[in-house]
Simulated assay, not measured.
Amino acid sequence: MMFVWQGLCLVLIALTVAGCLFQVASAALVRRFRRAPEPVPAARPPISVMKPLCGAEHGMAANLDSCLRQDYPRFQLVFGVADPADPALDVVKALPGDVEGAEIDWVADSARHGHNLKVGNLLNMWPKVRHDVIAIADSDIRVGPHYLDDLAAPFDDPKVGIVTCLYVGRPEPDLWSSLGAMGINHGFLPGAVLARAIGRKDGCFGATMAVRREVLEKGGGLAALSQVLADDWVLGRMVRDQGLEIVLAARPVDMNVHEPSLKTLLDHEIRWGRTIAAVDRTSYMASVITQPVALAALAVLAGGAWWPSVAALALAVLCRLWAVRVEERALGLPRCGLGLLGMREILSFVVYVVACCGRTVVWRGRRFAVRADGTLDQVEGSQT
């Protein structure tokens, strides 16, 4: 039996070393990404930005206003809500209507189009969209004045089908929001940059996705996304099936992170995890190597504090701390405390394990089962 435990310990140590290499490489790539020059578009075509809304989220007024304050000659913002009494509509109506080059339209329509409520909202907004370059952007992002230039620049290359944005979590000043932002800044973002560096070009992120109208319509339009959870991934696949590329915008956007409780944080992160697992379970299972501290801690338990496992744990802690500090400097983030980082490590592993073990998600008060093809089935009686 001792040989079995030592064998397991050696496997965990090997995975820990791989995880340490991942941490070092991804942090270095985040630093390189942020130092890369921002391209200037040769053409600046009119852009329609679609913003599906649901409720007046924290910071929404500033988020929407930042999208309006663009150094861009001509663009349209289209907002959509399902309920005419939604307080988000009051925020939209309070936006200034005299910004040069900007047009504002909004839609309030409760018509349903499949289980994906965000896509249903977008379908209701579609008749208002006027321009041939279309961006779909989340309501919780805040952008700089060159946001639309960053979206337009890659379209100078006709092989580009979608331009998408990475995002940096900017938390509300509370514990759960801070932990949520750390999961984005020291988990999602470095992993996404490394994935592209090793050749995976299928990452398409819902914070912002810009696409040409003809490409979207050729792929089946928004209706093709109405039954799936991972609408961003499916949109990216739609474009890749046409032989076109997904390109990252030069600058990430900021995402306002507001998690009022541990439950909301877990619901969000488990939903994200199961979304990824639904479309690529093998890769999601393999992503355990992104958590070397947890792997090394398991090695210590399996090996009874055998000295190689203790050394692996020390190495994992040092590599993880170094990577976090590099990412903080590259992204302009405040330094997180060691206690907070420890909590984030535990939470990340818990979310990973739970996401691997089920197919149900909670989304806007409803519980859905995610099929193997990524489509959704609402669980009976789950609406709140």
Rank of each mutant, 00 (worst) to 15 (best):
S139N: 04
S261D: 05
L175W: 14
V293C: 00
G144R: 12
C319F: 15
T275A: 15
A61W: 00
F205C: 04
L341I: 01
A62N: 12
R32T: 05
D373F: 14
V351E: 00
G80C: 06
A312G: 12
I198F: 13
P73Q: 06
N124C: 15
L229P: 01
G304V: 10
V257A: 09
G7N: 08
R371V: 04
N185R: 05
L318F: 08
E245T: 15
P52D: 07
P45T: 09
F79Y: 14
V351C: 07
A297N: 04
P37V: 11
V351I: 13
C319S: 13
A294N: 02
D138T: 02
A36H: 10
L21C: 12
C336Q: 11
P190Y: 06
S287H: 09
G337L: 08
T208W: 03
I13F: 08
R281H: 11
S309D: 03
H186P: 00
P96W: 02
P41E: 00
A56N: 11
A323S: 11
V379R: 00
G7P: 08
C20W: 08
F205P: 13
F33S: 15
Q291M: 14
R213A: 07
R196H: 10
W126Y: 10
A223Y: 03
L15H: 03
C165P: 02
G303V: 09
C54L: 15
W126Q: 12
F188A: 05
E103R: 14
R371N: 13
P190D: 01
L321Q: 05
W106R: 13
D156E: 03
L77M: 14
S110H: 03
